[in-house]
Design a protein around this nucleic acid. Structure first.
Lengths: 153, 153
DNA sequence: GCCCGTATGTCAGACTTCTGACATGAGTCA
DNA sequence: TGACTCATGTCAGAAGTCTGACATACGGGC
């Protein structure tokens, strides 16, 4: 069980554990959203639009961690289903501000409740202090990965 | 900026932050592995085999968080490239124990070093205590998501 | 012994996301 | 004004992963 010290120790590697946690969350979300006829990206897009109405295709893509091409495909589907609307012409530049329809808002309401239950379940064993600590740690990781590779101080 | 209190607050949602962190890590890993001609799943498979030689297709799939069908496609490719080997016949049951070849080990060595650098960069701002705390928190989240949905105590 | 449930390996097709490419519009600067 | 850069929307094709299905092998209960 211990013959490869040159590699990364999977059982304690935070990178691996981060992937494991994200994967577990992904599966749990998929399980509750599937009965509602929604995918995770589908839900994420609606949730994002509810909190920040008028986001463009590219902005939605960044917020849901997919490419703008993928988001474009999804938005066209959501538009066909009457869940979101986009103006035929851009008011400024090329960006098309997207808005939720009543139908989109009502679908989101059900999904959002289900997602919130999953998140609360995930955090059931953590008190407020631990949750705040976790926010701190994740924020630090994101910043370190996003910012310049290795800024020599 | 604040008109939707019915949904999940994205800026503080640990579910969203978890996804953001995993996405940032994914991008960073992709960036260092691509020049080596490897994908993340490709690398994960090799790393897993280095630490636990003889894992079967299904076990590798679980360890890398993909389906066994996807892992099967990958394993066939790795076999063609001479990075892993599998016996033609199963020694017991149907499971085929997979092993790294010398070529696989040598490719992994380079990739593993690059991945370790990314992980260390991610954790650069965290001391040993904070890293241990993060392990605890992530483990708790995984357990809560994996175990029974909501066991009433 | 025999049936059944579970786990595995594998093939085939569909779906999702990605990469590559192109055109449009805004801003900067000479 | 004109050239350049950057961001955006969109189309087309490629790559990766998933779902569905089937055959095989082990183990338990009858």
């Amino acid at each position: 069980m211990s013959q490869g010290e040159s590699g990364i120790e999977l059982d304690t590697s935070l990178g691996y554990m981060l992937k494991a946690a994200a994967s577990a969350l992904h599966s749990a979300l998929e399980a509750v959203l599937k009965p509602l006829g929604m995918t995770i990206t589908h839900y994420s897009c609606l949730e994002l639009l509810a909190q920040r109405p008028g986001l463009s295709n590219s902005e939605l893509a960044r917020g849901t961690f997919v490419t703008r091409q993928s988001m474009n495909v999804l938005l066209q589907a959501l538009e066909r289903q009457g869940l979101v609307v986009r103006p035929a012409q851009a008011p400024v530049g090329r960006a098309l501000p997207t808005e939720l329809t009543d139908r989109g808002r009502s679908q989101l309401k059900v999904a959002s409740a289900a997602v919130r239950r999953v998140e609360q379940n995930m955090l059931a064993g953590l008190d407020a202090g631990e949750q705040e600590q976790m926010r701190r740690l994740l924020t630090a990781c994101i910043a370190a990965l996003t910012e310049p590779p290795t800024p020599a101080t």
